[in-house]
Each structure stands twice: as structure tokens, then as C-alpha cells.
Design a protein around this nucleic acid. Structure first.
Length: 479
RNA sequence: GGCGAGGUAGCCAAGUGGUAAGGCCGGGGUUUGCAAAACCUCUAUCGCGGGUUCGAUUCCCGCCCUCGCCUCCA
């Protein structure tokens, strides 16, 4: 069973459903106001790894991940572009889904949108008002009263005094005087002119929900008042998750979430990600540089999730080679076993947990707080062990099949589609002329006419194409 | 200032009270017409200074440095 560190208790806790057979968990999703960058994807990818490990371990899941489609940023940007909020957020939401598909991130079972759950959010505020955990400020907004909730600060371990004295807070905008206390946060924001047409009716007048509220309202709607696990980037710990706990528990009186799972941030080439450094890479940026989704998955999952990860192009390169090795390794075994491909995720789930065989240590590393780096280490140890036997001709067909099951299971946990071994003939975009030359070279080579083959290869090189031979075919790459 | 994380080979990155996984790069080799790929093999004493211990990279203390959060950023 998976043991996972819990931010609240600071201990590793077993991950299992509290009720029934399904693990119910919520992940804070993206704010759809632009393309997500690799830092965002690190979180979604780690959550995906988490889900795969849980499911491969034989536990069903109900996975909810929201789309934040109403907040300051979405409203402002949509107006700057002269689009309606819906048009704007639908566009970026679709882009997010396309990116997730490209990265083989499993689709959540529910993906609620904040604007489509205004009623649920209002209902939650009404409960908080009735229980006197919320009040109406001078500006017409509704605030949560932090002082009414004794446990406030338990997740981030910030006490109220520190919250007030936080050094980074500039604290002198007009809002300060509209709230009873600086730490209080908005549940409902009264309409302001700059919000344009983006306002909804509520018992407190027209306005829009506060950001923190949507996760509480939608989490509880789809997973129940109390559910198993909640995840997000470390930065969400405070104030977002702290506020979610406060408003949810104040409303229901029961524990909101049993287990908090936070993912550390990414650094890029040793530096912090920022717009000014131009290193907020999106999936499209990396694709343009020639990297594929599996390489990104490998790189972004190669560090421990609780540790800041330094994303570098050296690591991407390392990932590319590592994946190729795994692909070649799988290919050898597939041939030996007389099979076409590794077992896929769905097939593995049908008899979860699978037999990991020599890759058992890699699986165990994943079960121990999703220790992906250790798992990768163990994976390659297993590969080497098998390679040695393979070389000595000591692996029989049925054994190869068993090894493939274990390998396939680890590969499925990481969610990769391994590159096929060399042997493909040119891609579709390859110009006819080039394919022609490559084919001629291949024929010359088959005829052992080395001089002609080399000549043709040089010709290809001049035209900007490299050719690499495999065992029974060749691969063309554009230089 | 408060809370927290971390400093391990050229790069990335695990880990342990008994002299340090794995990947990439680089060197050497096997194989291959060549090239590529693949396979084998080699490369660190764990930020600095003390202490505890038979023994510390791993525990304690001090110091230096990096990073995150402290009101809407995954």
C-alpha cells in the first residue's frame, strides 16, 4: 500500500479509501488564463503518477480536478482581449486539455468549472453566514472571519499573530478597512466596475465568488463533506488550502480532508522560473525545441516530488537516452516473447496489482512516498540484471513475458509510451526526394556496395538529413 | 523577523550509523562495412568547523550559502 507524506501531520500515512472501495481525491487545477508551463505540469504529472500508483495498487479512484475560470486574472485578460469570459476561458481550457492529452495525463473523473458552480458556492456562504463564520464588509463583499475558526493556520503552521505581521504584505490598500481583520478573506466579492459584465446575483448583491471557495464547494459536491486526499503545489498551502479547510470545516463541522499532498516547485537551469528570465516554458515551447511528451514526463517525474527539482536541458537529454534504452530493452524482450507490445494501463488495471517480478524494488520505491528517483534507479538495476542474462542467452520466452509484465507495469506507472526501437522507415513529412535517396542507399547497402551507400549518405547529409541504420531498417532524421 | 526545505561526482538525483543507487556526459572495450544504436567497463568520501560514537555523508551544536511560503503563484 502506498505510504504518502501528509503536510498536516508531517508523517507518511497509508493511502486508502476511508469509505467503500474508492479513494476520493481532489487536485487544484489550473486557472485558465494562458498556457500552462512546465512548473504547472510538474504538479499535474506528479498527481498523475500518484493516481496511477494507487490504481495499479488495486484501489479504485474518484479524481476531481477543477478549472478556475473566474478570478482577477481571467476577468482582466478576457477584457484586454475583448472576449467574453466564457469564450476566453474555454479557449485556454481546451488548450490545457490538449496539453494534458499530449502528456498522457489521465483525465479526472470530474472536472468542475467554478462559473458553473456559483449556486453551490452561494449555498456554502449561506451556511457560513448562518453560523456566523462570515460577515458582510463595508464594501458589500462577504468575508470569512478567521478569528471564528480556532484551528486556522494548522496546515501551514502560521499563527494569527504572524499572519498579521507578515513582512511581505504591503497592507495599505483600501481593502484593509473593509475587513474586520487582515487575515480574513473574501468568500463573495462585490461587483466592481472593472469586472465588467462578470457578476452573478446573490443574497448579498451582484458579485462573484472568492477564489478559495470554489474548491471547497466543488470538492464537497463531488466527493462528499469529508474526503480522502487533496493535492496541489506547495504554494497553495497558504493561504489557499488553509482557507479551504477553514471555510469547509466551519460549515460542516467535520474534517474536510484526511490527507494533504503538496508538490514542490520547479527551478529551471538552477534559476527560479520567471517571465523576465524567459524560462516559463510551455509544452509548445519544448515541442518546438524538439522534445516530446515522454521526455518531459521522464524529466519532470525524475526528482522526488517533495524536493525542488532543477529542470535542465541536460536532464531532458538524459531522459531521451534513458527512454531509448528502455525502448530497446523492451524490444529485445518482445521479440523473445513473441509479443507486439507492452501491456497497456487498462489491461494492467484489470488484474491489479500486477506481478512486478525483477522490478518489484522499483514498485516498492514508488509505494514509499512516490520515491520516483529511487524507483528509476531500481528500474535500471533490473534492466541491467536482465541484460546480463539476456546476453548469456538465459532468458526463455515465457520468462521474457513475465519480465515484460513487470516492466510494463512500471512504465505504466510513469505513464510513458516507450519509443519503438529503430527500424522505422522515414516519417510522412519526409520529402519524396529524400526518401528516394534513402531507399537507394539502403538497397546499395543490402547489395554491400559500400562506396555507393556512403556516397548516398553524404548526399543526404548535404540536403540536411541524417540516416541511421537499425537491424532491419533505417531511420531518417532532419538535421 | 516567523515557518519550512536544501547544500552528495562535469550535469541531474536517491540513500544509509559501518567507508555512497541510478540516469546523462566523458574515457576504455565488445559488436557493426563505416556511422549510429545497443552491450560491458572506469570516474565522488557526501558545504565548512566542532562534538557524540569503536565508527558519521547519515545524530547533535555552530557557521557559510541557496531556495520556498508569510493574502489570491502549480
Amino acid at each position: 500500500m502506498l505510504q504518502l507524506y501528509d503536510t498536516l501531520t508531517r508523517e507518511k500515512l497509508a493511502v486508502s479509501p476511508s469509505e467503500g472501495e474508492t479513494l476520493r481525491f481532489y487536485c487544484c487545477g489550473p486557472t485558465v488564463y494562458g498556457p500552462s508551463h512546465i512548473g504547472n505540469f510538474r504538479s499535474f504529472l506528479v498527481q498523475d503518477l500518484f493516481r496511477r500508483v494507487v490504481e495499479l495498487g488495486g484501489i479504485k479512484t474518484k479524481h476531481v480536478r477543477n478549472l478556475t475560470d473566474v478570478d482577477d486574472k481571467t476577468i482582466r485578460r478576457s477584457q484586454e482581449e475583448g472576449k467574453s469570459l466564457a469564450e476566453f476561458t474555454n479557449f485556454w481550457g481546451a488548450r490545457f486539455h490538449a496539453d494534458c492529452n499530449a502528456l498522457h495525463i489521465l483525465r479526472p473523473h470530474e472536472e468542475p468549472s467554478a462559473v458553473k458552480h456559483i449556486a453551490e458556492q452561494i449555498a456554502l456562504i449561506e451556511i457560513l453566514m448562518a453560523k456566523e463564520h462570515a460577515y458582510r464588509g463595508a464594501d458589500g463583499s462577504v468575508y470569512f472571519s478567521v478569528s471564528s475558526y480556532a484551528d486556522y493556520g494548522k496546515l501551514s503552521r502560521l499563527d494569527k499573530r504572524e499572519l498579521r505581521l507578515g513582512s511581505s504584505q504591503t497592507a495599505h490598500d483600501a481593502d484593509e478597512y473593509e475587513k474586520d481583520s487582515l487575515a480574513d478573506f473574501a468568500l463573495w466579492k462585490a461587483h466592481k466596475p472593472e469586472d465588467g459584465p462578470n457578476a452573478w446575483d446573490s443574497p448579498w448583491g451582484r458579485g462573484r465568488p472568492g477564489w478559495h471557495l470554489e474548491c471547497s464547494a466543488m470538492g464537497m459536491k463531488y466527493l462528499g463533506e469529508s474526503f480522502d486526499l487533496h493535492s496541489g503545489g506547495v504554494d497553495l498551502c497558504f493561504p489557499h488550502h488553509e482557507n479551504e479547510i477553514a471555510q469547509s470545516e466551519a460549515a460542516t463541522g467535520v474534517e474536510f480532508v484526511r490527507h494533504w499532498f503538496h508538490i514542490s516547485h520547479l527551478r529551471v537551469e538552477g534559476e527560479k522560473m520567471s517571465k523576465s528570465l524567459g524560462n516559463l516554458y510551455t509544452l509548445a515551447d519544448l515541442e518546438e525545441k524538439g522534445w516530446n511528451a515522454d521526455e518531459m514526463r521522464y524529466t519532470l517525474l525524475a526528482g522526488h516530488y517533495r524536493q525542488p527539482l532543477n529542470f535542465t536541458f541536460d536532464t531532458m537529454h538524459a531522459a531521451q537516452h534513458a527512454l531509448h534504452r528502455l525502448g530497446d530493452f523492451a524490444e529485445k524482450l518482445l521479440q523473445l516473447a513473441g509479443k507486439e507490445r507492452l501491456p497497456d494501463y487498462e489491461a494492467l488495471l484489470r488484474k491489479a496489482p500486477p506481478e512486478f517480478g525483477v522490478f518489484r524494488p522499483a514498485w516498492e520505491a514508488l509505494l514509499d512516498d512516490l520515491n520516483a528517483p529511487e524507483a528509476l534507479g531500481q528500474l535500471f538495476k533490473g534492466v541491467k540484471e536482465v541484460e546480463t542474462k539476456l546476453k548469456a542467452g538465459q532468458v526463455r520466452a515465457e520468462e521474457a513475458g513475465e519480465i515484460l509484465t513487470g516492466l510494463g507495469a512500471i512504465v505504466a506507472a510513469f505513464g510513458w509510451a516507450l519509443p519503438a526501437a529503430a527500424g522505422e522507415t522515414g516519417g510522412e513529412e519526409t520529402p519524396e526526394e529524400i526518401r528516394e535517396l534513402a531507399q537507394q542507399r539502403w538497397e546499395a547497402k543490402q547489395a554491400k556496395d559500400w562506396a555507393k551507400a556512403d556516397e548516398l549518405r553524404d548526399a543526404l547529409k548535404e540536403k540536411g538529413w541524417a540516416v541511421k541504420d537499425g537491424t532491419d531498417g533505417y531511420e531518417l532524421t532532419s538535421l
